[in-house]
Computed example of a mutant assay.
Amino acid sequence: MSFKVGLTRELRDAQGEPAFGRRALEVLEANPAIEWEYIPETLREITPEVAARYDGIYVNAPKVTRASVAREDCRVKIFARHGVGYDSVDVPAMSERGILVTNTPLAVRRPVAVATLTMLFALTGRLFVKDRLTRAGRWAERTSHMGVGLVGRTLGLVGAGGIGQELLRVAQPFGMRHLVADPYVDDGVLAPLGARRVDLDRLMGEADFVVVACLLNDETHHLIGAPQFARMKPTAFFINMGRGPVVDEPALIETLRARRIAGAGIDVFEQEPIDPANPLLALDNVIVTPHALCWTDECFHDIASTGLRSIVDVSLGRRPAHLVDPGAWKGAA
Rank of each mutant, 00 (worst) to 15 (best):
H291Q: 12
G98Q: 04
A136C: 01
T124G: 02
V288M: 02
I34C: 01
F209Q: 05
D13C: 04
G161F: 04
T118Q: 09
A328Y: 07
P48V: 05
P245D: 00
D73Q: 10
A140T: 13
F20T: 10
I78S: 13
P276C: 11
L106G: 03
L11D: 00
E45V: 15
A332G: 04
R23W: 07
S144W: 07
V211H: 09
F300L: 15
A70V: 14
D208F: 02
G159V: 08
E96R: 14
L155S: 02
T8I: 02
F121V: 10
Y86T: 10
P192M: 10
V212H: 11
A251D: 11
D325K: 06
A264T: 01
L280E: 02
D90V: 05
R202N: 09
G307C: 06
V189Q: 02
L323F: 07
D275W: 11
E254W: 01
N285Q: 10
F269M: 06
V64G: 02
G152V: 05
L106T: 13
A171Y: 07
A67H: 14
V69G: 00
V312D: 11
G162W: 04
G244A: 03
A70T: 03
G265N: 09
G156K: 04
Q165F: 02
R202F: 12
V198G: 08
V114Y: 04
R231C: 13
N240M: 00
K130P: 03
P111M: 09
V170A: 12
L281M: 06
A236P: 00
T116E: 13
L25W: 04
G137I: 08
A30P: 00
W329K: 01
R142L: 09
V180Y: 01
C214I: 11
R259V: 04
S95D: 08
N240H: 01
R75Q: 15
T220W: 06
Y184T: 10
D87T: 07
S95V: 07
V247Q: 12
D284S: 05
T8E: 07
M1Y: 15
G317D: 06
I224F: 03
L200T: 10
R44M: 14
D182Y: 14
D208N: 12
G125W: 03
A213Q: 09
V129Y: 14
V114F: 05
A80R: 05
T255H: 00
Y54C: 03
C294N: 13
Y58N: 07
A136D: 12
G137S: 08
E249C: 09
E10C: 02
R135A: 15
N103P: 09
L179E: 08
F238Y: 12
V312M: 09
P62N: 04
V112S: 00
F3A: 01
A332H: 14
L168N: 04
F128E: 12
P192L: 11
N103E: 07
R44I: 13
D199A: 09
A236W: 00
L28F: 03
D90Y: 05
T118R: 10
T143V: 13
V246K: 08
S144Q: 14
R53A: 14
S305K: 14
R177Y: 06
D297E: 15
L223C: 05
D208H: 12
I39A: 11
